[in-house]
Design a protein around this nucleic acid. Structure first.
Length: 288
DNA sequence: GGCGTGACGGTTGAG
DNA sequence: CACTCAACCGTCACG
């Protein structure tokens, strides 16, 4: 596993356009930035695809996401859905049940909302509450009171996992549509963090979700200040990318991200919770 | 030729 | 701590 990761992340794979990519991993933020940047300069997606040597499907996907959410960042990879039946919620349900053995599951649900234990985004479904009553509080009492709910729709309550569900991974402000870059946004300097190894700006969301369009604009503004690596790799000005530098640049970014991932400069913002954990190195892999 | 989209093989991380 | 599984990824091929 580790061996395979190291091999893949070191060498990557080459797509039909000659670009280097790592299967299963997001493109580097700098590439994503370039895609959005070039699109806003009026470069056609097909040309962006050729210039950056990224598949047009990927360009299409990134631009579509940007227009929809205002973010260029990849989504949160991995992990499990948040649990709504936290110990606190279970304890509260148990308390309600003990105080009023005849209470219905839907009444408990209403109480959870009314009492501020849950909000509309993380309140358990009626069937979930029934399951809690059945499994965690005692089936005997539950059945004797005739409140057993035979239908278990536990597979159907995914709607409760909202984008603003308040847990560390998906919490945060709702997505905002993309807006044209403004000069004021371009000149913003707060709310960002510069990676000193690469001079690539990093947004500083304290959540694992989308940054605001301001954050994206900020990112875009600083992508212009990206410094090319000292080797033969160059980073042309917007709209003037040539194919080969793009490939080198692409490949360089993978190597650089791989190297950065184990440095204190990269780990520091992560430890301070200002970089999306999705972009953090893990114990299994150091890739972003 | 350009673009949207689904299948595919892959990675990730909470549980 | 190995495993599961559902989230995500980019590429590719098709229409």
């Amino acid at each position: 596993m580790v061996k395979k990761n190291q091999k893949t992340q070191t060498y990557g794979e080459v797509n039909q356009l000659g670009g280097v990519f790592v299967n299963g991993r997001p493109l580097p933020n700098a590439i994503r930035l370039r895609i959005v940047e070039l699109a806003q300069l009026g470069v056609r997606p097909c040309d962006i695809s050729r210039q950056l040597r990224v598949s047009h499907g990927c360009v299409s996907k990134i631009l579509a996401r940007y227009h929809e959410t205002g973010s260029i960042l990849p989504g949160a990879i991995g992990g499990s859905k948040p649990r709504v039946t936290t110990p606190k919620v279970v304890a509260y349900i148990k308390d309600l049940k003990q105080k009023d053995p005849g209470i219905f599951a839907w009444e408990i649900r209403d109480r959870l909302l009314a009492d501020g234990i849950c909000d509309k985004y993380n309140v358990p479904s009626v069937s979930s509450i029934s399951r809690i009553l059945r499994n965690k509080i005692g089936s005997a009492v539950h059945h004797l009171n005739g409140h057993y709910h035979p239908y278990d729709s536990s597979k159907d309550h995914r709607h409760i996992y909202s984008a603003i569900y308040p847990y560390p991974c998906a919490a945060g402000p709702p997505p905002q549509p993309a807006a044209p870059l403004s000069q004021s946004a371009m000149s913003m300097t707060s709310g960002k963090l510069i990676n000193h190894n690469s001079n690539i700006p990093t947004v500083t969301p304290s959540f694992r979700g989308w940054p605001t369009s301001h954050a994206v604009s900020d990112l875009l503004s600083h992508s212009m200040t990206f410094r090319p690596p000292p080797q033969s790799v160059s980073m042309p000005l917007s709209g003037q990318l040539s194919a080969d530098p793009a490939q080198n640049y692409n490949y360089y970014m993978y190597l650089q991200n791989h190297q950065n991932s184990v440095t204190a400069n990269t780990l520091s913002p992560i430890m301070h919770g200002v970089v999306t954990p999705n972009l953090c190195p893990t114990s299994h892999s150091a890739a972003i």
